[in-house]
Design a protein around this nucleic acid. Structure first.
Lengths: 231, 231
DNA sequence: TTCTTGTCACCTAGGTGTTAATAT
DNA sequence: ATATTAACACCTAGGTGACAAGAA
């Protein structure tokens, strides 16, 4: 079985509609997809990998709310379906760089896919995951048992297991569309600290009950709670 | 067979008497020990590791030349034997973090031991290599074939091979003793660029034949030449 | 006197969103 | 209009030798 790490943070993003930047050179995901694994055979070899499947066959489009809104308005924009999805290229997979490794090694610490990068460059030759901007994707996590038997191909079907966490769904974008997503990224990603206007360490102490809860996930995620995988 | 990378740079350091800093927290080696490997079974698993053996049973001592020397003197100090070596602690080994891996993976690119760190802390619990300051050491590189047979222990003797490059010998120190070593480190280690007083990129062009050859190894090492292993 | 330790400025290396310019 | 790109300032993370202070 598998537990998603930083579930509280993923939930907060998912509630707003998670967006992930794609660039030509490749961009990491934030939050990073990381899991805790249980129940492997400690002595057996496993390959760990991820892929990304379209959530639907729609292409999205950002529509700006042009009506006058109060300052600090919450819903200045939203997603609209803009047509049928672009034809999917044969989806790439990302093997965790430690693969293959023994079950004992995978289980003894959190497995982090922080080397995984997303790109919109169809001609990418860095092995990055290729996605279409303005499309929605569902990350999937696969565990493959390395079968020592000679005719292991025959058992391929029973030698892997797939885990899907719906809270990790996201829209691929080349620039953030929802400003609240931007703010949550800035508040929770250490590499974006330069864009913060207050010290996040002070937030839990200074937090007023009525304030915008942009930082709540970050505060909570310091003691991450995991969730069981869907299927 | 194994080829040492950056051999020209190692030679230049070795000619001056290589020194490596050891610290409580652990310090990387420079030059980094890296090799190119040939002749493995592409499909077989191998473990790669390093250890460090005392070159002799001597403790060293730096003696300062107190006689008046001309400016820019070349030999202001030297090493003297200072007594018998301190009792050796059971030597640690450093497994290359990618171990175990297939021969094909080890051979397809340079294997770099840049995660290896040296410490003088006898109580170190970070898994770093523990060395005595003011003692000389010979790095050794070991290739271990992971024998798939059940009684593999019986074949341990024939399942590993050791490679020794004498030009990688060094003296462990807590502070540099030979100023020319310091200068060569500053000239060739990118992380010490802050202490340079000229642009190393310009050196090959501006190099006057009569000038001090401090940068020559760095200039040459841009097209690294390898050397065969001793044994 | 000699050796060791801890702090520091200054780097490498690379992950952020911003912004202005460009493409569609 | 909307979407994409490239350069950029500002971070994280961590590897340098210098230096002053301390230890042996």
């Amino acid at each position: 079985s598998v537990q998603l790490e930083m579930k509280a943070l993923w939930d907060e993003f998912n509630q707003l509609g998670t967006e992930m930047i794609v660039t030509k050179a490749g961009r990491r995901m934030f939050p990073t997809f990381q899991v805790k694994i249980f129940g492997m055979d400690p002595m057996a070899d496993y390959m760990l990998l991820m892929d990304f499947v379209p959530v639907d066959d729609k292409r999205y489009r950002q529509v700006t709310n042009t009506q006058p809104v109060p300052r600090y308005a919450f819903h200045s924009s939203s997603w609209l379906v803009a047509g049928k999805a672009d034809p999917a290229t044969p989806g790439r997979v990302h093997y965790h760089p430690d693969s293959p490794a023994k079950g004992a090694q995978w289980m003894k610490q959190i497995v982090s896919f922080d080397k995984l990068k997303l790109t919109n460059n169809l001609l990418d030759d860095n092995g990055h995951i290729i996605l279409n901007s303005m499309h929605r994707y569902q990350p999937r996590f696969h565990v493959v048992y390395v079968d020592p038997r000679k005719d292991s191909e025959k058992y391929a079907e029973e030698n892997f297991k797939t885990f899907v966490f719906e809270e990790t769904r996201f829209t691929a974008v080349t620039a953030y569309q929802n400003h609240r997503i931007t703010q949550l990224k800035i508040a929770s990603n250490p590499f974006a600290k330069g864009f913060r206007d207050c010290d996040p360490e002070d937030w839990p102490r200074n937090h007023r009950p009525g304030a915008l809860p942009l930082m709540s996930a970050f505060a909570r995620s310091r003691n991450p709670v995991s969730s069981p995988a869907h299927q």
